[in-house]
Design a protein around this nucleic acid. Structure first.
Lengths: 228, 228, 228, 228
DNA sequence: ATCTAACCGAGACGGTACGTCAAGTCTTCGG
DNA sequence: CCGAAGACTTGACGTACCGTCTCGGTTAGAT
């Protein structure tokens, strides 16, 4: 969904790509980048791959996921996979996004506390879905080991960070928070605790903890403000 | 250092073996760790392996570290490595411990804030050593992918957690903190932020940030108490 | 039985084992070949090894026989085996000889035909014992692959050849056969057919065939004489 | 040459591929040996493997032949070897067949004696080529130790047996031999002596002995008939 | 109506590393 | 001081996937 090539949004590439061209040659083609012919992409193969990936992710876990296995399961040639996804990590991330079609919530309750609690509660709910937990663990691992995957993963996490940052920004705009607040650190605390528990697995994440965690974070921020 | 077999403690066998001599008949033969013969372990090979691992860790990074490469570099048979370390993760962890011989500090300054700031400042200093950063990233990744390595890694991180927990426990004993404080969560915040940044790499860890981070955490805890 | 070290002749070592006990320090150097001290050989270990070998030979066959397996089964150190038998082949041959304690018959019926038929019939009977068949196959294979074992094996087969040669020699002495008879070739025919069938396994050896085979061989020899 | 996959017959693909062009619609697509895709087979790698095997067979002998060594020498990945030959034995047999491209002779001189002498003389000539001797020994050994190789080897020897059987069959057809002759046993005698000497190595095979051996065999057969 | 480029399936290729097995050697200890 | 124990190192094994490649064959838009 995020990466340009994988999930083919109908239009997504035409707009950005026509602008720069400005008026390369003259004409029309505005909409179409470059494509004079050729067989059209087989959507079946595409979804079969994503489905197979999701299934295998569930059955064997990320660590045992192999391109070969996906190809076999999807009844597709290995090269067809590589044509569209350059690595296991990218593919897994894409498949994960498909499964978790319900996107991150972006609550806007009017108060920072309300927003954060809503978000964190939802965040902690993944703990109830072993498949998702294992996939997230695997993606994080992949990002450590595959340098070419890291930026993609970072971009993905960045999007999630952005959601939370926006909450804080709104709070500042509302005057709830001082403009000097170190938002970055606050976001790090929220996601840091989440990932740390997810990766270590020493303690399961429970949505019920969300409220306390948020309160403690906000107390920390306000305490700082109070002291100046 | 943690696992019994890998790094052979010098003493463990000599002591039990001399005791029975002095009391041949009577006492406990149980103590003797049965050893009637056999070739003695080759310490050279052992250290050669650890050295090679550390070197390669530095040169190629954790992701490209291979048992085969280590064996070649150490001029040792692969199975000799497997005899003592059951996996790449365990070996890397052992080698890391050797390199970072200077252990985690356990400051006891008399105040919680002093202890935490000392510890966190030291913690954040690893950001200055790319080798260590990459190794820690790799170990965390390994723990996600290799189920048999996970508990070992968890044990290791548990030891580090214990150090911080002790600081909080002392603070509670001193009356600095309420007995109801959720220490676990506090520890999660400290390590969570640390690992999150380390793994995502979106922002470098700077020792200078330690003080602010600790203050915010303590404010959060005290705020809770004040209300609570 | 053939090689000097393996199967200890009863006499030479048993005596020293009881004598020294009665006169610990002083006595009898004369009789003893050369032995100034040292631990005495453990006969139990010795027979345990042979037994284990025979058992495993039966259970898993020669191809899957390993020194390691034998050591485990006999509850003996591997090096103890190597001390007395330099290779798997030698050991297997020794164990085989123990099992097939009933030695090759050396019939002396008064006529060449009688002698040969008796011998060949007995020879072909191994076909009824899969264990022996597989062991003989394995020994032959070993002789091809292990240059140091070949001479030993050749010596062993040489002993069996000698038995048959003797029959022919007696026949010549009796005047049954011309002195010019190519005995070597005749022996090769007997054992050649036996081994060829044993190794290829295309047809099972049956004792009932012995008579015909011998007759054909003798006809061949006499035909040559008649012409020649 | 025997097994379908290993040595790819040159013709099957080139011919059918040009022919259809000339007769686009009409003719037989049946001839085409199903090829729906896949990278084309690299003939160079294939012959390089066979060559390397033959060389190593000569240099180090069958016993010391290793797949790893072959791969290195042929400058080919080990898996490429295993893709086509499932074991060392099969590969060695194939390489042997390549080297001894001159196939077994199938003399048809008009008389049984002439046929046999011609064949046996040629058979005994391998004694002059140590490489071939050692290879044959190794193959026989392998057949004993590797159950999956045995049938292949048996098939190969079966082909050679068939050649000799045909000679006897012709003789029977000509009336040279009684129809009751035990051809199987006669063939066993010929090959039995050959292999027995080859494997034991107690006496070298000399082509000059062929004539005598054949005569003795035929005398044996005719003697039986005479009495018969 | 053809051309033509992109697609897909198949599967061989060279490669790297894996983890295991059994071999045979070396050192220590005990009788 | 020899024999037993057993820890040691080693080489090769066969396998699994990797990512690339080279085909044969399809399919649809552009000409």
């Amino acid at each position: 969904m995020t990466a340009p090539p994988p999930t083919p949004e109908p239009a997504p590439e035409s707009a950005p790509e026509s602008a720069p061209k400005s008026a390369p040659k003259s004409a029309q083609p505005a909409a179409r980048p470059r494509r004079t012919g050729g067989r059209v992409r087989n959507a079946d193969a595409h979804t079969a791959i994503l489905d197979a990936t999701a299934e295998l992710l569930e059955e064997v876990g990320y660590a045992s996921l192999t391109m070969e296995g996906i190809a076999t399961r999807a009844d597709v040639a290995k090269s067809t996979i590589y044509r569209w996804w350059k690595s296991k990590g990218v593919l897994a991330m894409d498949a994960y996004a498909h499964v978790v079609a319900a996107r991150m919530p972006e609550p806007d309750t009017g108060s920072l506390r309300g927003d954060l609690v809503g978000f964190v509660r939802e965040l902690y709910r993944v703990g109830k879905y072993p498949l998702r937990v294992r996939t997230l663990q695997g993606l994080m691992a992949e990002a450590q080991l595959d340098a070419s995957f890291a930026p993609l993963f970072q971009e993905w996490t960045g999007q999630r960070r952005a959601v939370v940052r926006a909450m804080f920004a709104r709070a500042v705009a509302r005057g709830e928070l001082a403009a000097t607040t170190d938002i970055d650190h606050a976001v790090d605390v929220i996601f840091g605790v989440f990932w740390y528990r997810l990766l270590l697995g020493h303690e399961h994440l429970k949505p019920s903890e969300a409220e306390v965690h948020v309160d403690r974070l906000l107390d920390g921020i306000r305490g700082a403000e109070g002291r100046g």
